[in-house]
Simulated assay, not measured.
Amino acid sequence: MLPTLEFDLKTGKLTGSTGWSKLKGDIRANADQLTIDPKTNPRPANPFETSFVDALRQVSLFRVSQNRLTLLVDGQYVMTLRRT
C-alpha cells in the first residue's frame, strides 16, 4: 500500500496512513513554511515507515504545482505527493 495524507489546514489536523499504520497529527502552514507533527503506532512496521514519519517531522517548507505537493527539509526536496 502507498502512504496517504490528508491535510485540514482550518483545523490544523493531519490524517492518513503510512501504508501500514494509521497516521494522525497536527499541521501548521504559514506562507511557504510548514510544520508537521505526525503521530503513529509506537512500533513502526518497517524501516520505510520509520523513515517516512521521520521525514514528515523534519519538513519545513512546501511547494504546490500541478496537483502535486512537494515537501522540503532544509531547502532539499524530500518527497512529492500527488493529489488523487
Score class of each variant (00 low, 15 high):
M1Q: 09
M1T: 11
L2W: 07
P3M: 03
P3D: 03
P3S: 12
P3H: 05
P3Q: 02
T4I: 06
T4P: 01
L5F: 03
L5R: 01
L5T: 02
E6Y: 12
E6L: 11
F7Q: 01
D8R: 05
L9V: 06
L9M: 07
L9I: 06
L9Y: 11
T11R: 10
K13W: 04
K13T: 11
K13S: 13
L14F: 03
T15Q: 09
G16D: 01
S17M: 04
S17L: 02
T18N: 02
G19I: 02
W20G: 10
W20C: 15
W20E: 13
W20L: 09
W20N: 15
S21I: 05
S21T: 09
S21Y: 04
S21M: 07
K22G: 15
L23H: 01
K24L: 08
K24H: 14
K24G: 07
G25P: 00
D26K: 11
I27A: 10
I27P: 00
I27R: 00
R28Q: 15
R28T: 15
A29Y: 04
N30K: 11
A31Q: 12
A31G: 10
D32Y: 09
Q33A: 15
L34G: 00
L34Q: 01
T35L: 13
I36Q: 01
D37Y: 11
D37K: 12
P38R: 05
P38W: 00
P38C: 08
P38E: 04
K39Q: 14
K39D: 14
T40L: 03
T40M: 04
T40C: 07
T40Q: 07
N41W: 10
N41H: 13
P42C: 11
P42S: 12
P42M: 11
R43Q: 14
R43Y: 14
R43P: 08
P44D: 08
N46R: 04
N46A: 08
P47G: 13
F48I: 06
E49I: 05
E49T: 06
E49G: 05
E49S: 06
T50G: 11
T50D: 13
S51R: 10
S51K: 12
F52D: 01
F52W: 04
V53D: 04
V53T: 00
A55L: 10
R57K: 13
R57G: 15
Q58D: 14
Q58W: 06
V59I: 06
V59R: 02
V59S: 05
S60C: 14
L61N: 15
F62N: 00
F62R: 04
V64Q: 09
V64W: 08
V64A: 13
N67Y: 08
R68I: 07
R68E: 11
L69K: 03
T70P: 01
T70S: 09
L72Y: 11
V73I: 05
V73Q: 06
G75T: 02
G75H: 01
G75P: 00
G75V: 02
Q76N: 10
Q76H: 12
Q76E: 14
Q76L: 12
Y77C: 13
Y77A: 12
V78S: 06
V78F: 05
M79T: 10
M79E: 02
M79D: 07
T80Q: 10
T80C: 09
L81F: 09
L81R: 02
R82M: 12
R82F: 09
R83A: 12
T84A: 14
